[in-house]
Each structure stands twice: as structure tokens, then as C-alpha cells.
Design a protein around this nucleic acid. Structure first.
Lengths: 168, 168
DNA sequence: CTTGGAATGTCAACAAGGCTGACTTATCCT
DNA sequence: AGGATAAGTCAGCCTTGTTGACATTCCAAG
């Protein structure tokens, strides 16, 4: 069946061509813009940016996480994170509690107000994701996740997997 | 077959849960970091950044494109693009030719030197993409593209489609 | 044919959010 | 007691986004 591009041989030949790979690269670029567009719009009205969104997301995801842990998840420097964290704490969106076991540590939690913002940001982002999932269907979604997971750096993949199954 | 998560009913119930959507969001976040990591490493050694990479990519992709067209593809202001473009032109990676029909326009082309950098950047990025594609397989790749395409903003999707099939 | 508006591209100045490096404070652990 | 670790801070830099003002060119209405 040499004419059917979906045949085994056709698949194995075509999906790794430079042309296919380049389309994948451009798809990532354009899709990521869409992915961040809705939260960005919400944040633009406040004095926050994408960095605040990321911090809020992962604090919500791992309540009580330490600054150090957040640092390695986000992959930024401590100074960068600290600037963001300081404004979030000052504005009463995030609470920093001295560690009970180890008093050097600070455990981060969202306040009610912080959880509200997290909710509105993730609602917006999930709405788009849901529409994309629905349009593409469950088989496509499984493939989407597989490729993304294979694309991650080893270290980030570890963080992703650690978060992955909590509460699933 | 109520126990098989891959059954029709299981699929249609599970792939749109908030939990599934949140995992997709995190997969996008971590995968995008991997996606840009290799070109970023190359660029860090020079005095360029990700913005230069994007400009070079799309000039390579659409030789002779105007500044205005590039602007709407990249979705930045013309001042932002101009700064990047100016350094690329000064360094002899990009050539800007006054339009023949409309002298207000500037048509952009990569020089030999520019094409060499483009090559090394896209080689690095394609290598990672190829490994991910190979690991996930052709069916997953098709799904990956479907979900990403459904996630794009309408305007960006138009640009993506316009680029999509040239030379494929 | 000229003149005014629209379009294209350039320059100047500023802000967000990355980065490095040096340092302090508090705490833990050997 | 003393080194290692967690967090926070200050200073200063770079990239890359922003807005506003401006020059050039085109085109169409008077």
C-alpha cells in the first residue's frame, strides 16, 4: 500500500522528515502563544505578569512547598523568584510560614485571595485547553501528552512526574 | 467494560476532567522549556536571545517577507522587532532590501552567515523534536499536532496555516 | 498636480523580569 | 565550635517587551 500515507511504512517514513519536524516546531510556537494569552490578559489589568502566574500555579499545586523547591520547579534564580514572591506576599495573596521541623525553611500557601486569583487564571487557561481537547478527541490528547513528555529535559520531567499523579 | 480506562465511555469521561486539563497545562509548561533549551544554549554564547532566533526562523521560512508581515507573525511591536532586526543587519546575518514595487517596504533575507546560524539553531531544535517524535510514535505525533492547532488563536492559526504547506 | 491621510519603517526612553555576584541571618548538624 | 544549608537582600546588568514621536513613501481626492 504505497499510496496510503497512513500505512505503517508511510507513517514511519513521513513523520520524521525535516518538514514534519519543522511544522511541529512552528505548532509549538504558535500554540504556546495561545496557551498563555488568556491568563496574560487577566494579569495585564493587575500589576502582575506571567512570572506571578507561574508562582501562584505551583504554590496552589503543592501547598506548603518550600522556596527552594519552587525554585527548582520554575528554573529561575532566587533573586528573580524573590522579587515576585515578595509582591505576592505584600499584596496578601501568598502566605509564608516558618517551617515547623526546620525553622530555616519557609512554607508557601495561597491565601483566600490568592486562591481566588489562581482560580480565575486557571479557569481561563483550562477553558481553552478544554476546547482544544474536545476538538481533537481523546486519542489525540493521549498523543499530545506523550510527545510533550518526551520533549522535556530529564530534570524537568522528574518534577512533572512528581506533580503528575497527586489527586488524580 | 467499566474498568478499562481506554474504553469509549472511559475516554469520553476522563479526558476532559479538570485533572486531565491541569496535567496538559503543566505538560505544556515543562515541554516548552525543553523546546527552547537547546537553541537558547547556542544563543547564550553569542550576544543574541530568543527573539533573534524567532526572527531568523521566520525570515528563513519566508524569504523576502516584509517587516510588517514578520510583525504580525511574531506578535510583537515593531519597535521590539526593529531592535532585533537592526543588530542582525549590522552583524551581517540579515539583508534588508528596499521594495521594488513599494519603496516603503523592506524585504528581508538571510545572508550566507545568517543561514548558517539558522541551520545550527534549527538542527539543535529538530534533534530534540525528532527524539520526542521517535519515542512517541506516528499516531501520537498526529494527536500532538491536532491539539496544538486547536489551541492557537484564530489569527495565529491563519499564519500557521499559511506557512504550513509550503514545500511540504 | 498637489496636498493630506494612510502605511511602512526607525529612533528614544522606559518597565518587566530574567541573570550574576556578594553578602547577611538564622538554623541545622556533625 | 564551626561548616553547611535555607532564605532573603542589595546592586547592577541584559534581553525583550511597551508607548510615543518622527521620517519616508504611496495614493487618492480635490
Amino acid at each position: 500500500m504505497p499510496d496510503n500515507p497512513m500505512s505503517q511504512s508511510g507513517q514511519s517514513l513521513l513523520f520524521l522528515t525535516d518538514e514534519q519536524l519543522r511544522k511541529g516546531i512552528e505548532a509549538m510556537f504558535f500554540a504556546y502563544r495561545g496557551f498563555t494569552a488568556d491568563p496574560d490578559r487577566i494579569l495585564a489589568d493587575m500589576e502582575y505578569g506571567r512570572a506571578h502566574h507561574r508562582a501562584i500555579h505551583f504554590i496552589h499545586r503543592s501547598p506548603g512547598t518550600t522556596v527552594n523547591n519552587l525554585l527548582s520547579i520554575l528554573g529561575v534564580t532566587k533573586q528573580s523568584l524573590n522579587r515576585v514572591l515578595r509582591t505576592l506576599i505584600e499584596d496578601g495573596l501568598v502566605e509564608s510560614r516558618v517551617g515547623k521541623e526546620d525553622k530555616r525553611e519557609r512554607h508557601l500557601h495561597l491565601t483566600i485571595k490568592g486562591a481566588e486569583l489562581e482560580r480565575s487564571l486557571s479557569d481561563a487557561q483550562r477553558d481553552r485547553m478544554r476546547a482544544a481537547y474536545r476538538a481533537a478527541g481523546p486519542v489525540a490528547v493521549a498523543g499530545f501528552r506523550q510527545v510533550l513528555e518526551a520533549m522535556m529535559d530529564h530534570d524537568l520531567r522528574r518534577h512533572y512526574d512528581t506533580l503528575k499523579d497527586r489527586g488524580a
